[in-house]
Design a protein around this nucleic acid. Structure first.
Lengths: 145, 145
DNA sequence: ACGCTGTTGCGTGCTGGTCGCGTTTTGATA
DNA sequence: TATCAAAACGCGACCAGCACGCAACAGCGT
């Protein structure tokens, strides 16, 4: 399921992009790092191995990788965008109270997607923005208050 | 359905907030202006009648109005947040291609909300972020390409 | 009309990200 | 393996959108 860095590098070459140290490190950080890294977290990971990499290089690489369909970015809340490999794209539920991020089951959006398509002709791509709400723990906590 | 400025002003007083010129004008702009104004668009509307109102005053008023539950803000895309009266809260579908904003029918989110609640205990509040996708026109245009 | 305190205008600062420039690096070709 | 155009890089300046501290001002209970 999760791709290797080499496979992703191959995707870069296929797309006509060059393979640089910074780019390889960004991909490595995405494959091996935490689940929903921001651009800045990726920068930190990259700099652990190549201290001179500039922030704008990371931003430009993420942009290019997104253009090639290798990564996607998602907004989980008001802060920075988070990035992950396109092969791992999924919807997110984010708790407004505690900030917990839940990866939504694949089929959760299906009924809504069907409805939007049938009634409005609108094809949903519900991955770019998280859907907010209140998680089970926080809802229970609110009950007992 | 849509509240009058006077009713909203009363809500302000009930909440213990003072009623100032700037605040009244922000509410007026929300009631009478376009559908999904940004803070800056509201500023322009306010300044048409009171040219010395400062941007930060609009931001602070929107924050306060939101705290009182009079307005809510929504992110329709990558740009500035948009504001509307809490009485008019609704979900949004935004076309990634042409940028069109569709106000989602009330019940479109119901099946997903039910599923999230039943399976994850997660209570959806799907109004804060728009759900992206491709609108009927753009999907048709893409077909014929 | 007085005075407490919330609100305003103003400037300054912050986060997250973009852009232009001159230099370095990549990788196709010879 | 040397060459070289184009791609990518490092760097700094800059931008949007918004938050904040402060002194002056104004709403509103008395």
């Amino acid at each position: 399921m999760s791709s290797t860095v080499d496979e992703l590098v191959a995707q870069l070459r296929d797309g006509g992009s060059r393979v640089t140290t910074a780019r390889r490190l960004v991909l490595t950080a995405l494959v091996k790092g935490a689940d929903h890294p921001t651009a800045e977290e990726l920068l930190v990971a990259v700099r652990a191995l190549a201290p001179d990499v500039h922030p704008s290089t990371v931003y430009r690489n993420l942009e290019e990788l997104e253009r090639l369909g290798v990564v996607v970015h998602t907004h989980l809340g008001h802060g920075a965008a988070t990035y992950h490999l396109a092969t791992e794209a999924h919807g997110h539920l984010v708790c407004e109270v505690c900030g917990a991020t839940i990866e939504a089951p694949e089929d959760l959006f299906e009924a809504m997607a069907d409805g939007a398509k049938r009634r409005l002709g609108f094809e949903l791509r519900p991955y770019h923005f998280a859907v907010l709400g209140v998680c089970a723990e926080c809802a229970a906590a609110a009950q007992t208050d």
